[in-house]
């Protein structure tokens, strides 16, 4: 198995294909971590995405070798994407269960995820996000880091290597954009 630190250093060295290897590893680690945490947590308690992501970072990356800014950035971006996928899959599954489709419960663990919105809302947000990414990838990335990986603006800015004020502007715009989109499709948003 390729080692995450090694992949990061390949990215550092300018190997564009390396980034593709990162996501599956991070994805797996996050799922594992979350499962482990959920197994120990009382029902009803919540996970913090940011804690999870930092955990994954500490576990996967030899931090002393990878103190560099750029490599971290790739990692967090991959982690945000991984978190997005996990949560969306989870939401899909829950929605399916709710509507009686797919009676099999595949991943019991996922039932414990406590999200701040309903599965439908989460999926709707994700659809919007995909559209936004086509139009404004940086703004979409900020949303991913903030909404799915639980980062605050400062952290997201650091991860993206942009100024905090810039990150804030992206965020303001993206939030309005997605809300507008949802309003126009008449999705119930509280």
């Amino acid at each position: 198995m390729a080692d995450v630190t090694q992949i990061l250093s390949q990215i550092e060295a300018g190997d564009p294909s390396a980034a593709d290897q990162l996501l599956p590893l991070v994805y797996e680690e996050l799922r594992k971590l979350a499962a482990a945490k959920l197994a120990h947590e009382k029902p009803g308690q919540t996970l913090q995405a940011t804690a999870l992501v930092h955990d994954a970072y500490i576990r996967l990356v030899a931090t002393d070798e990878a103190q560099h800014w750029h490599s971290r950035r790739y990692f967090f971006s991959a982690a945000a994407e991984a978190m997005r996928r996990i949560l969306v899959e989870n939401a899909r599954q829950k929605a399916r269960l709710k509507h009686g489709g797919g009676a099999q419960r595949v991943e019991l663990d996922d039932d414990h995820w406590v999200t701040s919105v309903s599965p439908e809302q989460l999926m709707a947000v994700d659809d919007c996000l995909i559209k936004l990414a086509e139009e404004d990838p940086t703004a979409a990335e900020v949303v991913k880091l903030r909404y799915f990986a639980g980062m605050n603006i400062a952290e997201a800015a650091d991860s993206l290597g942009i100024h905090r004020a810039t990150a804030h502007r992206h965020w303001t715009y993206a939030r309005a954009w997605i809300r507008a989109e949802l309003l126009s499709t008449d999705t119930d948003i509280k």
Binding site: L47, T50, T115, S116, V117, F148, G150, I178, R179
Partner: peptide, 9 residues
């Protein structure tokens, strides 16, 4: 919506 992270309360 979006003010809170998806799983962070």
């Amino acid at each position: 919506l979006l003010d809170e992270p998806a799983i962070e309360i």
